[in-house]
Amino acid sequence: MRKIGIIGTGNMGRVIGLALAHKGYEVFFGARDVSKAQFASQFNNSSKFGTNQQAAEFGDIIYYSPRDIHPKEVLEDLSVLDGKIVIESGNWNISDELDAEKISVSKTEILQQQLPNSKVVKAFNTVLQEIFEHSIKDLKSYHIACFMASDFSDAKAEVSVLASDLGFTPIDCGETKQAILLEQAGSLMRILIRIKNNPWLSFSLTQLPEIKDLQLGGRMASNLHGKTDFLKNN
């Protein structure tokens, strides 16, 4: 199994790292405040902890948690991330009036620009930390979606394996440019949490059986839908 380095052991870094450690992955928790990394490692004796730089050096795959902080402010040497897969799951703020921040560029695109020699993958941004408390068996039965986007198909394939190992259903949403849509979905999720006053929510994507004998007229050509060649019944 690939080694996992957690850069920034906050809530999400801790639960993702521990979930992977419980699955058998080697995990190194890093933090600017090493006590946070130490706290996380106490939940799994096989995991390691230390600085963010040590976590970056240890991991073959990195989970990057610091929000809106340039990696050069977190690491002493950015070159240690060259060629590595870097997962980020950042979302945007929601106001007390439930207004979502306007998104013109995704956090994934920003991090990719900051780490031009790494393979940045958007993933897990619509999965709340509470969801990781469920068993892998239950998560599989719920078909909880782990949406992902990246310009690197090999990196997405490896993150898909991680997601599947944790019980999630990986959904490839395309290139990095699609990360902006995933972050909008993240904003929607955070709004729903506040409306429902319930963090035990998640998205799933269900493929229904195809109906060959259409009774309602079928889908007609429309400029709103763009190309519809993929629709067998059109």
Results as ranks from 00 to 15, higher is better:
Leu75Gln: 00
Ile87Trp: 08
Asn93Ser: 13
Val120Gly: 06
Ser89Val: 01
Arg67His: 13
Ser104Ala: 09
Gln113Lys: 15
Ile110Phe: 05
Asp68Cys: 03
Asp96Met: 10
Lys107Tyr: 09
Ala123Lys: 11
Glu73Asp: 15
Ala145Gln: 08
Thr108Val: 12
Asn91Met: 06
Val120Ala: 02
Gln114Gly: 01
Ile136Gly: 00
Asn117Ile: 02
Gly90Ile: 01
Asp82Glu: 07
Ala100Ile: 07
Glu97Ser: 14
Lys107Phe: 07
Asn125Leu: 00
Ile136Arg: 08
Ile87Ala: 08
Gly83Asn: 14
Ile61Gln: 02
Asn93Cys: 03
Lys137Val: 13
Glu88Asp: 13
Pro116Trp: 07
Lys107Ala: 12
Lys140Met: 10
Lys122Arg: 11
Tyr142Phe: 14
Ala123Gln: 03
Asp96Lys: 14
Arg67Met: 12
Ser89Met: 00
Ile110Arg: 11
Thr108Phe: 00
Trp92Asp: 04
Val121Phe: 10
Ile62Arg: 06
Val127Cys: 11
Leu128Val: 12
Asp77Lys: 14
Glu88Thr: 13
Thr126Phe: 07
His143Gly: 12
His143Arg: 15
Leu139Ile: 15
Leu75Thr: 01
Lys137Asn: 14
Ser79Trp: 07
Ile110Cys: 07
Leu111Pro: 01
Ser106Ala: 08
Lys137Phe: 09
Asn91Tyr: 02
Asn117Arg: 06
Tyr63Glu: 08
Arg67Ala: 02
Ala123Ser: 15
Ile94Ala: 06
Leu98Gly: 08
Ala100Val: 07
Lys102Glu: 11
Asn93Gln: 11
